[in-house]
Simulated assay, not measured.
Amino acid sequence: MSGGSPAEGAVTRSSQRPVVALAMGDPAGISPELTARLLARDDLREAARIVVIGDRRVLEDGAAVAGLVLDIEEVENPAAPTAPGHSALLGGGRLDPAAIRRGTAAREGGAFALANYRLALGLAAAGHVDAVCYTPFNKAAMKLAEPSYGDDAVHTAAVLGHAGPVSEFNVLGRLWNARVTSHLPLSEVAAQVTEGSVLRGIRLTASSMRAAGFSAPRIAVAALNPHAGDGGNFGREEIDVIAPAVERARRADGIAVEGPFPSDTVFLRARAGLFDAVLTMYHDQGQIAMKLMGFDRGVTLLGGFAFPITTPAHGTAYEIAGRGVADVGASLNAVLLATEMAARRTT
């Protein structure tokens, strides 16, 4: 597929369905409801074998919020058979939902999500599942449970003992957003934008997109400074750092990459179809644009790992937890992207 990606919401059907470990996220938010809504979808069960990791009581609480009754069978390993139409539940973190106050970050909730996620990662690393997806985490709760917790990509690399480059990607249909820097104070961004870090970002973007079905992804690189530095009047990072990295990626690696472009217009070019991805210099430079274009549809992909890891790009939505109104669109897209990428790895 040249310069293209799987259609958003498209369901992959094959004789050998990928196995996706679905780790339940923060129980105080909409994660239990989203998990239940995913399991109720016939099209998703046709696309992949979903193995939920968590506590039956939390899942059933989420199903009650969603107004659903689920057929769930607890299994001891992901390969254990279940009756037709039944979903598999593998015990992870143990938690009585009555002990959690909805809409409030708590150590117990963070510990539950961490236990589920680590089990899912271990299963994927051992080859027992093909991909990992997780419903939203709350970073405050995660840090209460584990004070050293930084962000999802860094934590995942630590759990897996992965030493290579990793990054979060935001995916909205056919458009991807990558970052050179991620979760750090804005005051530290400029020092972290080096020719090497920009080049790593371009290379990781290209390789991750190829794994998702792009044969020749077209990447636009955003500037750091206003008006792309205005020829050096507003900063020289574009001249001294970003442009050399772009040229090196184009000449040495054969990557279809251009830039740096002013960050206030680069997403207009990408949305018009001129590029498949935008590599931004810092977190909100891309996140704001992507969430404005599709808050309820966006997916976060953790790139650089040996297997697909995805989650909805939105958060735990504490303000609507327990109301039964959570939109499952982004979570569905997250599982489908993981499924599609896993299918490509196994064929």
Results as ranks from 00 to 15, higher is better:
A7Q: 13
G9C: 12
T12V: 14
S14Q: 12
R17M: 07
P18N: 11
V19R: 08
V19N: 01
A21N: 08
M24C: 11
G25C: 09
S31F: 06
A36H: 08
L38S: 08
D43L: 05
G54F: 12
V58N: 08
L70Y: 09
L70P: 15
E74S: 14
E76A: 07
G85A: 12
G85K: 13
G92K: 14
L95D: 13
I100E: 09
A111P: 02
L114S: 02
L123G: 01
A131H: 10
A131K: 11
C133T: 15
T135H: 07
A141T: 06
A153M: 13
V154M: 06
L160C: 12
G161S: 07
G164T: 03
E168S: 12
E168T: 04
E168N: 14
L172I: 02
V180E: 01
T181M: 11
S182F: 08
L184I: 15
E188T: 06
A191Q: 15
T194F: 08
S197Q: 11
V198S: 01
I202Y: 00
I202Q: 01
L204V: 07
A206V: 05
F214C: 10
P217M: 00
V221K: 00
A222P: 05
N225R: 10
D230M: 04
G232V: 10
F234H: 12
E237L: 15
D240V: 08
R251G: 00
A252T: 07
I255G: 02
A256M: 09
T265L: 12
L268R: 12
R271V: 13
L279W: 03
Q285Y: 02
M290C: 03
F295G: 05
F307D: 11
P308V: 01
A317R: 11
A317Q: 09
E319W: 03
G322A: 06
A334S: 15
T339Q: 01
